[in-house]
Simulated assay, not measured.
Amino acid sequence: MSRAFILLLDSFGLGAAPDAAAFGDTGANTFGHIASWAADSGKPMSLPNLERLGLAAAAHDASGEWAPGFAMRDGFTGAYGAAREQSTGKDTQSGHWEIAGVPVLFDWGYFPRDVPSIPAAVTDKLQELTGVPGFLGNCHASGTEIINKHGDEHVATGKVILYTSGDSVMQIAAHEEHFGLERLYAMCEAAFELVKPYNIGRVIARPFLGENGNYRRTSNRHDYAVPPPSATLLDHVKDAGGEVIALGKISDIFATQGVSRVVKGVDNMALFDALLKVEEEAGDKSLTFVNFVDFDQAFGHRRDIAGYANALHQLDERLPEFMVKLKEGDLVVITADHGCDPSWPGSDHTREHIPMIFFGPGVAPRALPISDTFSDIGATLAKHLGVKPLSNGTPLL
């Protein structure tokens, strides 16, 4: 029996990539700077399960530095390494697609930092099509912050909150009850058609609830995304008769292409609960792909170092629940899609190495060389599952 699991810690970078200067990210190091902050605070991080698998060693190989508080130098239990991105951008879709064997070698469109960021040609037409009285924000912003800033006015006037980021994305936020969830989805569908000439990768519906300046986003997020330009690991597994189980926002990122089943979760721990259930159910030749989104959306973009550190501790504490249920023939990789250093200026992603930590009953511990493409991950899993080789990447195991 052969099964594969991708546990993607959204934005968990291990240090600046060689081309980080081109992105203004020289010196960025998501893991290293969180560990330094914790050590300087007098409470060094403790991630014993990830450390035993080789996390700190992989980070050392990527950055040349040992993260403060991590003393283990040998005796690792995983096959560990790091990878550099081949895609031209540091956005969500590029990272996920490249892991699955399809690097993004073209340039996405991005909205400028000028205000308004999204051009009038788009917003005027969107207002005409949907009948909303206007828009709020229309700038680069952190989603949780802009929703709390404009939520009251949105509820009072019906004007919709628009924002973007360093990703190729347009985000539309509205109150589930006062505005309506289906109405928000319909607006995002219309917007997705309008931004196609701008080569924007995604339009994201960001529903929220709450009142009086205290709002929270819900799990009813939905991404309207451009599909991958060619077959990914997901397609190869599904075409070979295997089930592809997408947890969190994975299905949206791949525009449902190659996905057999979708499982949602409101936050990291809900997604981990769902992962444990799927682990019991998944059959032979299955691929389970989970994105733990809170690392990015709740802590990385918000530059919340303490929150990011706490989320890492929570995940590490629960890893044994997952590991004890693994079966012979299972192969797991812990990885990321980009960095989002919470100590870095601004709120955008950072161009960094990502972890490649493979483990499972048949995996021999070893240090892996730094990969020149995230696609080596997908190529390794394709070989393990016995499906058609990917067009990009080299198996590592």
Rank of each mutant, 00 (worst) to 15 (best):
A282N: 04
A282G: 06
G283P: 03
D284R: 09
D284F: 07
D284I: 04
K285S: 12
K285T: 08
K285C: 06
K285Y: 08
S286Q: 09
S286Y: 09
L287D: 05
L287C: 11
L287M: 10
L287W: 03
L287V: 09
L287H: 02
L287R: 03
T288S: 12
T288G: 05
T288M: 12
T288F: 01
F289L: 15
F289T: 02
V290H: 10
V290Q: 01
N291W: 09
N291M: 11
N291H: 13
F292M: 10
V293G: 00
V293S: 09
V293P: 00
D294P: 04
F295M: 13
F295Q: 08
F295N: 07
Q297P: 00
Q297K: 14
A298T: 10
A298E: 10
A298C: 12
F299Q: 00
G300Y: 00
G300L: 02
G300A: 08
H301D: 10
H301L: 13
H301S: 07
R302K: 15
R302A: 14
R303H: 12
R303F: 05
R303N: 15
R303P: 06
D304S: 09
D304H: 10
D304L: 07
D304Q: 05
I305V: 15
I305E: 04
I305P: 00
I305H: 00
A306V: 12
A306F: 02
Y308N: 02
A309C: 08
A309R: 05
A309V: 09
A309K: 00
N310E: 15
N310R: 15
N310W: 14
A311S: 13
L312H: 13
L312K: 11
H313G: 13
Q314G: 02
Q314I: 07
Q314E: 15
L315R: 10
L315D: 01
D316N: 14
D316I: 12
D316T: 13
E317Y: 11
E317P: 00
R318I: 05
R318A: 03
L319T: 00
L319S: 05
L319Y: 04
L319K: 01
L319F: 13
P320T: 03
P320E: 05
P320D: 07
E321Y: 00
F322K: 04
F322V: 03
F322E: 10
F322T: 03
F322P: 04
F322Y: 15
M323H: 01
M323R: 01
M323A: 01
M323D: 00
V324D: 11
V324R: 14
K325D: 07
K325E: 13
K325V: 04
K325M: 09
K325N: 15
L326P: 01
L326N: 07
L326I: 10
L326F: 02
L326C: 08
L326S: 05
L326T: 05
L326H: 05
L326A: 12
E328H: 12
E328F: 08
E328R: 14
E328K: 15
E328Y: 03
G329P: 02
G329Q: 09
G329D: 04
G329A: 09
D330W: 01
D330Y: 02
D330F: 04
L331C: 05
V332F: 01
V332R: 00
V332W: 00
V333G: 01
V333H: 01
I334N: 01
I334F: 13
I334E: 06
T335K: 07
T335C: 13
A336F: 03
A336E: 02
A336R: 03
A336L: 08
D337V: 12
D337H: 11
D337W: 05
D337Y: 05
D337R: 04
D337L: 12
